[in-house]
Simulated assay, not measured.
Amino acid sequence: MEDEKIAWTNVRMRLDQSYGYDEIWEEAIQIFNNRLRKKFFSPIQIIINDRSKNGEGFAIMTVQCAIIETLAAFRKGMIFNHNNRNGNPAYEYKSSRKIFTEFLLSASIFKDHFWSLDITGAMVPNNPFNSIDFYSDVRCALMHEARTKNNWHINLSPKKTDSKNESKFIVTKNGKIKIYRTLLHYRLLNYFMEYQNELRQNNQDGEILRKYFARKMDSLFEVVPDVNFDWWN
């Protein structure tokens, strides 16, 4: 982590509070990319490649829930603070439920899982699966009790499934809600790259995402909030 912190410290000083995408912002994105791949995605891939069937899905899914919240927080520049009180900065959050479920109800990866579009193109939340149920019965159950609850199950992909291209990773089968953890791994990888491409956009949306991204990177490497940097304001 020390090398990553040094790299980010050097990059943030060179950004000079400019939000236009350039080679310096690309350096920042690559620090983020390398960190999540090394510490999260690669360990999951090692487990998957081992092809063991002895309950590893629980470990995989727990890490995946951490990835989901990380991406949700980066998109909004939100920083977790367990001691958050009234009067603290608006970018701090104490409860994960809101940021986690809002992400499930908006991110492209979860279309047709936790949200869908009706015939008019309007968004239908919690269809076909409920985001709060997933948060409480999968994410929280794994984090706090090392299990899933209320009919949620973690499974291997069905035989002959194209894990790298199949889009549907949650299904109802034989009365059970099944999460195919390997399919979700590849979908999260795709979304991870999608988010990085959004960070590269040279438009207003890209600039907003880069501002939130920089604040979150500061927090990640324990840089003290500094109002001299616009992303802390």
Rank of each mutant, 00 (worst) to 15 (best):
M123L: 14
Q45V: 12
I177T: 05
N10K: 14
D133E: 15
L199E: 01
N150I: 07
Y212A: 10
K216R: 12
F129M: 03
Y195A: 07
P89I: 08
S219I: 04
L105P: 01
V11I: 10
E26C: 06
T161C: 03
A90E: 14
L220T: 15
G175S: 14
W115S: 08
N84V: 15
I29N: 04
K211I: 13
N88T: 07
L220E: 15
R37T: 13
L104C: 09
F134G: 06
F103S: 01
I109L: 07
Q17R: 13
E207C: 11
C65T: 14
P128H: 01
K98T: 11
D118L: 05
W25I: 01
M217G: 04
Q17A: 08
M193F: 13
Q201M: 03
I208F: 09
I170M: 01
Q64F: 03
R200L: 05
I47H: 00
Y191F: 14
Y21K: 05
V11G: 01
F213K: 06
A90T: 11
D226M: 09
F103Y: 03
K160E: 13
E27Q: 02
A90N: 13
N126T: 10
N165E: 13
Q196N: 07
R210L: 15
R14G: 04
I99D: 00
E23Q: 11
D118I: 09
W231G: 04
N34I: 13
S42R: 08
V224P: 05
R187H: 01
N155Q: 13
N203E: 02
E23I: 10
F41I: 11
F40T: 02
D133A: 14
R210M: 14
F58S: 08
S96I: 10
Q204T: 15
N233D: 07
D22R: 03
F192A: 02
N54H: 12
N190D: 15
A107W: 01
A122E: 15
N88S: 09
F103D: 01
F169V: 11
E166T: 09
E198I: 13
N81D: 15
N130G: 07
M193I: 13
A59R: 05
H153K: 10
D137V: 03
N86A: 12
I79A: 00
T120P: 04
K149S: 10
D50A: 15
L105R: 03
I119W: 08
E26D: 14
L71S: 06
F100I: 03
K111H: 05
N155S: 14
K111F: 02
F169N: 02
R139M: 05
G20C: 01
I46P: 03
K38Y: 09
L142Q: 00
A107S: 04
M78I: 13
K38Q: 06
I67N: 02
I177Q: 08
N54P: 03
S18T: 12
A72L: 06
F221M: 04
N126H: 07
S18P: 03
L142K: 00
E27M: 03
L199F: 05
Y91W: 12
E166K: 06
I60A: 00
L189T: 15
N202M: 05
T70R: 00
R97M: 04
K111G: 06
Y195F: 11
N197T: 03
K98V: 09
H153T: 11
E102Q: 12
R37L: 10
L209C: 00
T182R: 08
T172Y: 08
